[in-house]
Write a protein that binds this DNA or RNA. Sequence first.
DNA 1: TGACCCGTGCGGCAATATGCCGCATTCCTT
DNA 2: AAGGAATGCGGCATATTGCCGCACGGGTCA
Lengths: 183, 183
Amino acid sequence: MSVCPEQPSLLVVDDDPVFCRVLSLALSRRGFVVNVAHTSAAALAQIRTEPPEYAVVDLNLAGDSGLGLLSHLLNLDPTLRIVVLTGYASLTTAVEAIKLGAINYLSKPADADEVLAAFDITSGDPTAPVSSRPLSVNRLEWEHIQRVLRDNEGNISATARQLGMHRRTLQRKLAKRPAKFDG
Amino acid sequence: MSVCPEQPSLLVVDDDPVFCRVLSLALSRRGFVVNVAHTSAAALAQIRTEPPEYAVVDLNLAGDSGLGLLSHLLNLDPTLRIVVLTGYASLTTAVEAIKLGAINYLSKPADADEVLAAFDITSGDPTAPVSSRPLSVNRLEWEHIQRVLRDNEGNISATARQLGMHRRTLQRKLAKRPAKFDG
DNA sequence: TGACCCGTGCGGCAATATGCCGCATTCCTT
DNA sequence: AAGGAATGCGGCATATTGCCGCACGGGTCA
């Protein structure tokens, strides 16, 4: 790829410094002028001073909702092309993000090529297979737990109550999963 | 709810007759004129003769892709408000459906109230996103098992394999549930 | 027909997971 | 300072799973 006189600019919003570094390095190597923001405030400031053409936004920003940031960003610049990232695959947040105006959705871990491919999408192929293999019950349970836990802002006791499981059991499940990440 | 002189019309597209019956009954009880289509062809015919205002489309239609039907329907009537349903919670199909023009996405099991709530969403309100009370993990697991089992035409061994659980365990779960139906 | 392959149902047994206590701690709110 | 709620964790009785085995039925194929 040859270097254009006008390189496309891209903003990475994620509070994980390691992930940010890796992704921004990979993207700048592919010809983007990359800026990084670790917080919503920083992202908003950035878009005001130097509006980028593209943005990669992690929805799991510490503190406030990534969805709120998403709509703020698009409010400030409706032409901004945003791809949304999140740690675990949550259906509802994905749908929300798309409805709010994100052009695509990825779940971590996502590498630079996936991100670029996500920007490229013109539209889905309607004739494509509807496919999708059933999730393993363990994974389904895990994702559901994560979603409810997030809904409850991390409150384990409340989550356990809503999920109809013992608090101790939830604790143990949460403590175990991150270790051996299952498929 | 009072009956309007002009009741809103709604089309349910799903190849599961039981689900269709239950949902259409519940929706008509809530004031909709409900039509049912079990195939893509029937849905397209229906929309040509009697275009409804709303549609509930199952993406897992036997045969062709539900996404294809979705774009066809919207092609014939761009004002049609479609909520998409699918058995498995698939992130990519959800995103595709929204991008194609569905106004919302639900995963089965979805009751009539959830469907109506899905239609109600006024676009782009980040502070009032999808609600839905969290399912208990047991119930979620049970529904998922039933779905996959149906998908495998009752084959327990295959289902257990896809679900990543031991066949014996699946047997035991299936044997136990029908007795004490949990919430 | 008999040798396979696959699925089903079920008993048993060891390894795990779970439910349910308790307790010490922390963080709010009053 | 006292009350309320959440957290993390140890322990222990009980429930659930994983994994064997075996018998049986229904296909397929040489």
